[in-house]
Computed example of a mutant assay.
Amino acid sequence: MTTAQKSGTTEATEAVEVLRGALTAAGIVLPSLGADTASPALNLINLGRVRADVALRLADVLRRGCDS
């Protein structure tokens, strides 16, 4: 694994933890949330699938955050 790949994996993992913390504070759980380790240089985050009620809650939280 190259330094760039290690860096990408670390960055993606840190981003997942920050996002998970913010979602938890808003009362939202994305069960499949995680770093996509298949392409570490791309720093991709897998948000996964969620139930419709969770998607609506997430949309509501985002809208309220955008209004402030």
Rank of each mutant, 00 (worst) to 15 (best):
A25L: 07
I28V: 15
G65R: 13
L58Q: 06
T10M: 04
N43C: 08
C66S: 15
G8F: 06
G34R: 05
L23H: 11
A15F: 00
L58F: 07
N46Y: 13
M1S: 02
T37E: 15
G34Q: 00
T37V: 15
A25W: 00
A38K: 15
L42E: 14
I45T: 01
A26M: 05
A52E: 14
G34A: 05
L30I: 13
E14D: 12
R64Q: 15
T37R: 15
D36V: 10
R49E: 14
T24R: 14
P31W: 09
V18Q: 12
G21V: 08
L62V: 15
A55T: 02
G48K: 08
R51N: 03
V29G: 04
T24E: 14
A35K: 03
S68F: 10
S39W: 11
S68Y: 10
M1T: 04
A38Q: 14
E17H: 08
R51I: 05
V61C: 04
D60E: 08
G65M: 10
P40S: 12
T24N: 12
L19F: 10
Q5A: 15
E11G: 02
L30N: 11
A52G: 06
A4T: 06
R57Y: 00
L44N: 10
V29K: 11
R57D: 07
T10I: 02
L30R: 12
S68I: 11
L47G: 12
L47R: 11
R20L: 09
D53W: 02
M1E: 00
G48H: 04
V61A: 11
V29H: 04
G27E: 10
I28N: 13
P40L: 11
T13Y: 01
L42I: 11
L62G: 07
P31R: 10
N46G: 10
L33V: 05
A15H: 03
A55H: 06
G27A: 08
R63H: 13
L62P: 04
T37Y: 11
T13L: 07
L44G: 05
V61M: 07
S7E: 14
N43I: 00
G27D: 07
V50S: 06
A41S: 09
G48R: 06
L62A: 15
V50G: 01
Q5P: 01
C66G: 12
L56R: 08
G65N: 14
R20T: 11
R20A: 15
L33I: 04
P31A: 07
A59R: 00
L33H: 05
A4N: 06
V18C: 05
V16N: 02
A35L: 02
P31Y: 09
A26K: 03
T3H: 10
T13G: 05
V61R: 08
G65Y: 12
K6M: 04
E14W: 01
A55Q: 10
I45L: 07
A26D: 08
A25R: 02
R57P: 01
L56V: 05
I45G: 03
A22F: 06
A22V: 07
V29C: 05
S7N: 12
Q5D: 11
L58W: 05
V50K: 01
T3K: 09
D67A: 03
V29N: 10
E11Q: 00
L58R: 01
L23Q: 12
A59H: 03
L47P: 09
A52I: 13
A41I: 02
A55S: 07
S68P: 07
L44T: 09
Q5R: 09
I45F: 03
